[in-house]
Design a binder for these strands. Structure first.
Lengths: 117, 117
DNA sequence: GTTGCCGGTTTACTTTTGTAAACTAAGTTT
DNA sequence: AAACTTAGTTTACAAAAGTAAACCGGCAAC
């Protein structure tokens, strides 16, 4: 599908990029999109997720998850078992990012192939 | 009770996220995607671009452009006029990111509407 | 009762990212 | 000559993002 941007008048220059900046403010940093990709496959517990995402420090995972929960992209569930277990899962709203993430991942595959050559 | 805590699978399945990490490594930071959006509309000279992207400092724009040029997403052209003029434009490879950027921008619009409510 | 897992937090530190403002070295305009 | 524009760089600094590793309280397993 060929992308076609509507013509932009000089006066409104700069406005068209505000939504992009909004999106980037929510997804900022090195980890959030990767966390969302992991959680789009299945739900994880904290240490599980840390093992799955190679290289992330506990402090960062903790911080990033908090922000994702605040933005309703991820849900934190406490299972009232003995002992309790805490599970992170993607929300419906988080799933609305799956297109974006998959486009990005697909581009990454092409990019990797291009770099190897 | 005799509750058995579910064991963590040590099984390795994190390969699928490598392309995503590749993509994010190229597009990291606060500005690169915004720069690419601006350049997808039209080419710009340095100061023009700085005016278009509200809030970016010269140092950052300079640095980000260098990295984008290195990755062949942006082209720097010196026009041999008198005086010379230098123009930044998006490359064909940079255009291959337009799907990603537009998906992100569309999501940003939905996100903004959601937050306003 | 000691070891170890779980869900994080704390500490201490380095690196990256960001800003504003001054500056440079050309050329152009007045 | 003085002032302005262009394309950045340099300086000096602050804030954000990142790391490894130690730590904590609750529980469970051996």
């Amino acid at each position: 599908m060929a992308y076609k941007r509507p013509a932009i008048k000089k006066k409104e220059c700069g406005q068209y990029m505000l939504p992009l900046r909004d999106a980037l403010n929510v997804l900022n940093g090195k980890w959030k999109i990767i966390i969302l990709l992991a959680l789009s496959v299945k739900e994880y517990r904290f240490k599980e997720l840390q093992n799955e995402i190679h290289g992330i420090a506990g402090k960062m995972l903790s911080k990033e998850l908090k922000e994702l929960v605040q933005n309703d992209l991820v849900k934190r569930t406490v299972h009232d078992t003995m002992p309790i277990s805490i599970v992170y899962s993607i929300t419906a709203y988080g799933r609305s990012l799956e297109n974006v993430i998959e486009e990005l991942r697909k581009w990454g595959i092409k990019h990797r192939n291009r770099m190897i050559k």
